[in-house]
Design a protein around this nucleic acid. Structure first.
Lengths: 295, 295
DNA sequence: CTTACCTATCGGAATTAATGATATATGGTC
DNA sequence: GACCATATATCATTAATTCCGATAGGTAAG
């Protein structure tokens, strides 16, 4: 058994056929068949059921598959770690919540790429849930997400602490007034957004249930609509305050236990921390101290 | 880069020379040299410093080495998991504290091997510290140790809860009397024993410091010596009560916050739980319910 | 200076993997 | 039922890789 065998096995399992796997691996079907057979002989158990439309994993094959995937990932990691000599360079793909990107990251990102021009930085935004999955699946080296995150394969580090506030149009003086209106609309960034559930909980606890949900793709759009009186949203205070719509929006502070949310940086426990990522974290951590001191 | 390459690399790194690695791998030195060279070419960086007495890892080699080890372990795990069809069989090597083995495991072990005769069970005893290391190093599939254990690669499950008591000779009526004597001796199983530090803490909190330390290799020997008035020890209540020295020993209960210790079963998070181990845990868990209920 | 021990190199042997053609099986379609 | 499209299995041949054994070169200890 070798990494090359497992690579072939994995392709056959994923594509459901030896022909398809051969095509993907740039080889011929007979070769794939032979290698799979050798692997089966070595393990003393069939890994696939053969049928006329292709192959399907046997129970033994199902047990082997996750190891094949880990093996492939381990080789990628090993190469990365070996070549990484301590100087940040190469690709660095990280994720962040839209709000974190807007509120905290912009200045950090630009100074980071200036300090380390050899790093090819990519930032992808998504919801906490999406980002957690992507980090776990090795698609992102790390991500800024809403805490707390409980995932056995991920390690989290608290970096920012945001105060969330309810934002409404200027005319709305109190929360009760808002809820009393009846036709309450919640404005959120995306359906899976971390703040959505929290906002619904907050309103539910105040007696407002079944509010309509409006989705807008950008924070600017949300604030614009909230300013125009379309509904209520939940966002970090600083983000609303710094917006060009700030003047036309009323902020409603929440009690302490509902107001705060921690932004964690998560990464896989078992993956190599590249020099590029380490430098990035070193870059992100210092402002933390000032930000926290100011609050 | 392949598992075979990393296997050779690992042997060279561990043995500090290509000749020695060749001997261990049952091949010739020229072959090892060539494979290492290919690996270095592929990664674009030297992995070893060559000198007249052998080789030494370069920084890049040091970064690669842990991955080579993980790769080897992953292959072993993959084979085990694939072949394991759900019927407990084959080797099962677990560890336990001497006290846990004596107090809890003996009946469980014998019924387990009767229930699953195809399993080759091996039990190794050691201190919590030793057992944790051995589980982490894949030398044991799991172990019973004193909680709490905080190790990122290990998962723990609380199985037993023991009441610890101080045990002295029959004549010693109170703890204060014991401490007042001055020439206090602590009797423990082994220097690194989990209970030693705890016993020292307990005595220190009562004003007894600098007590002499006596080590005996077996629990019987400890209890015999304690009964003979040689010193004091700390052991699970049931263990002392069930001993043949029980009559000649006085038990001194500890306050609740000092008295209890949890026995955890630990195992590596990332390793396959073999059917033999799963069956073992299923075997060990039920008595837990009765034992807890009785306390 | 010699010895012992180490790594580097190279050509040829042995082994292993990949290829391409062919055989075989199955489910759908006319 | 004949036919076709799509699968995997088998096998002889070719290509590639790995392994071996001998040799060369370098360095430190005696």
């Amino acid at each position: 058994m070798d990494a090359a065998d497992l690579r072939i096995f994995e392709a056959v399992a994923r594509l459901g056929g030896m022909n398809r796997a051969a095509a993907e691996l740039n080889t011929v079907q007979s070769n794939v068949t032979a290698r799979v057979r050798l692997l089966e002989d070595e393990l003393g158990t069939p890994l696939f059921h053969r049928h006329s439309r292709g192959v399907a994993l046997t129970p033994a094959g199902q047990r082997l598959l996750p190891y094949a995937e880990r093996m492939a990932q381990l080789l990628v990691d090993a190469r990365r770690a070996t070549v990484d000599d301590g100087t940040p360079r190469g690709p660095l793909v990280i994720g962040a919540l839209e709000t974190t990107a807007a509120l905290r990251l912009s200045p950090l990102l630009s100074s980071y790429v200036t300090a380390w021009p050899e790093v090819d930085l990519a930032l992808r935004t998504g919801t906490t849930c999406e980002l957690v999955e992507q980090v776990a699946a090795h698609q992102l080296e790390g991500a800024f997400v809403c805490g707390p995150v409980d995932h056995p394969e991920l390690a989290g580090e608290a970096l920012f602490r945001e105060e969330l506030v309810l934002a409404t149009a200027r005319g709305v003086r109190t929360l009760d007034a808002l809820i009393g209106e009846g036709d309450l609309k919640i404005v959120v960034l995306r359906a899976g957004c971390s703040y959505r559930q929290r906002l619904e909980d907050i309103l539910a606890r105040r007696g407002a249930v079944g509010a309509r949900l409006l989705e807008f793709g950008t924070i600017e759009a949300i604030l614009g609509c909230v300013a125009a009186g379309l509904g209520v949203t939940l966002l970090p205070r600083a983000l609303v305050a710094g917006s060009r719509h700030g003047e036309r929006i009323a902020l409603h502070a929440l009690p302490v236990h509902e107001a705060h949310v921690e932004t964690l940086f998560i990464r896989r426990r078992d993956s190599h921390v590249s020099s590029a990522l380490r430098a990035f974290l070193d870059h992100v951590r210092p402002p933390l101290l000032h930000a926290q001191a100011a609050e």
